[in-house]
C-alpha cells in the first residue's frame, strides 16, 4: 500500500500542500475561483505543524489499527481492506466529532458549515496525491509501504 511519507528536514513550511489540498477538495479547478467563489473556504486535509525551525506536514497516517474507524458512531469512516485507505462517507457523517477526539494526531478537521468531519482520502482518483505533486521541495513522497 502507498502512503504519503514526510521528509521532515526539507519541509520549509510554505503551506503550498495545504493550498493545493484545498483546491483539490473544492468544486473548482481554478484556484482563484476555488477560494473566492465558494460559500466557505475549502478545508485542507493536512496541516503544517510548526515549531520553528521545525515544520511538519501532518495528515492522516492511515493507521494500521485506526482509532477513528473504531470510534465512528455511524460507520461513516471505513478502512478499505485492499488499499488500507481510510475514508469518510460524507452522507453518513453526522458531525458528532467523536473521531476528532479519537485521533491521536489530531488530523481530522471540522467542516462547520456542513457539520461533517473531514479527513485525508489520499486524493482518491488521482495518481499522486496533490500535496505530494505540488511540494516545491520534495518534502512529501508517495511511497509503497511493505506490510
Amino acid at each position: 500500500m502507498k502512503r504519503v511519507l514526510v521528509n521532515e528536514p526539507v519541509c520549509m513550511g510554505c503551506h503550498l500542500c495545504e493550498v493545493y489540498c484545498q483546491l483539490q477538495h473544492s468544486k473548482h479547478e481554478d484556484m482563484v475561483k476555488a477560494f473566492k467563489r465558494e460559500p466557505s473556504r475549502p478545508i485542507a486535509r493536512l496541516r503544517i505543524e510548526e515549531k520553528e525551525p521545525l515544520f511538519f506536514p501532518l495528515g492522516c497516517q492511515q493507521c494500521e489499527e485506526p482509532y477513528c474507524v473504531n470510534a465512528c458512531l455511524t460507520g461513516a469512516i471505513t478502512k478499505n481492506s485492499d488499499t488500507g485507505v481510510i475514508t469518510t462517507d460524507e452522507e453518513k457523517c453526522i458531525g458528532c466529532w467523536t473521531c476528532i477526539l479519537a485521533c491521536p494526531f489530531g488530523i481530522i478537521r471540522q467542516d462547520l458549515l456542513r457539520h461533517k468531519s473531514i479527513k485525508c482520502d489520499l486524493c482518491q482518483g488521482l495518481e499522486t496525491p496533490t500535496c505530494v505533486a505540488n511540494c516545491p521541495n520534495e518534502a512529501l513522497t508517495y511511497t509503497t509501504i511493505e506490510d
Binding site: 482509532y67 466529532w97 476528532i100 477526539l101 479519537a102 485521533c103 491521536p104 494526531f105 489530531g106 481530522i108 478537521r109 471540522q110
Partner: peptide
C-alpha cells in the same frame, strides 16, 4: 476541539 485527540491519545497511552 480539533487537536483534542492529541491530548486524549496521551491520556490513552
Amino acid at each position: 476541539i480539533e487537536k483534542s485527540g492529541i491530548v486524549f491519545g496521551l491520556m490513552r497511552d
